[in-house]
């Protein structure tokens, strides 16, 4: 029996057989799930646009006995493609990273409406943001927090005392920021007081009434934040997102 209409974002697709796809969808109500999309690689398939990366649709899934028990995409109505992301590789690479991170971090069949809304809002913000990296770093922090993996940013994760004006390190294995004098692990990266402030704000953009689409983040500030969050993702989620390598590849290119 087909399930009721639900909002779903396409996170990933994998070819199956001659013309089918297996899509990984993040739904608002039913969490992350895989579904079979039949015949979508044929010309003029009406469901093809629904099975593209970043496609947001209202879908109906039908549960069948075959396909290893995977539900089948019965009906789908495309709502949003985040088309403007395609204009700029840096933006679309960061969008791909957010989606990959959500896919890696969210377990199957576990409803995560807050993360669903955060991901949609972040994709929308990426299409227009003055500095796409601001949106990306805020998403990383908020995702970790929502999963209960929030890095310690308001005190020293080693001795629990306030950080004060002392030099600080971001040490993911220790749980977050620490006083530099404790040493820290091999993964520890140094962060300036400005970078610490930026991370705190990006963790709670609403509390600070930030508009992530207009916020600027100079490279001096962005570099240590990116390094800290990269190690947090690696350490807390045990993940090495593939899109990150491309984002870094592009960052090495000279500006046009």
């Amino acid at each position: 029996m087909p399930t009721s209409n639900q909002l779903a974002l396409c996170l990933r697709r994998r070819e199956q057989g001659e013309s089918d796809l297996i899509v990984t969808l993040l739904t608002r109500e039913a969490g992350k799930l895989a579904a079979v999309a039949r015949g979508v690689r044929k010309p003029k398939s009406r469901q093809a646009p629904v099975c593209q990366l970043f496609a947001l649709s209202r879908v109906q899934l039908a549960t069948r006995g075959d396909h290893g028990g995977l539900p089948v995409l019965a009906q789908a109505q495309l709502e949003e493609t985040f088309y403007d992301l395609r204009a700029d590789l840096d933006r679309s690479a960061r969008a791909a990273y957010l989606v990959e991170l959500a896919d890696l971090a969210i377990p199957d069949h576990e409803p995560q409406p807050t993360l669903f809304d955060l991901l949609l809002a972040s994709l929308a913000a990426l299409t227009t943001a003055l500095e796409p990296r601001v949106v990306m770093h805020s998403f990383e922090l908020q995702l970790l927090a929502e999963l209960g993996l929030e890095p310690v940013l308001d005190r020293c994760a080693h001795c629990a005392l306030p950080l004060g004006d002392e030099a600080a390190l971001f040490d993911a294995p220790a749980g977050g920021l620490i006083h530099a004098r404790h040493g820290g692990s091999a993964q520890a990266t140094s962060v300036s007081p400005e970078a610490v402030r930026a991370m705190r704000r990006l963790l709670r953009p609403d509390a600070y009434e930030l508009d992530l689409t207009t916020l600027r983040m100079p490279p001096m500030l962005a570099r240590p934040v990116a390094a800290a969050l990269r190690s947090a993702v690696r350490c807390f989620l045990d993940a090495e997102p593939r899109a990150l390598a491309i984002i870094e590849q592009l960052a090495d290119e000279p500006e046009p």
Partner: peptide, 11 residues
């Protein structure tokens, strides 16, 4: 094609 999700960049 370039597909950051698959780790494929311009290089």
């Amino acid at each position: 094609v370039i597909s950051p999700a698959d780790g494929v960049g311009p290089d």
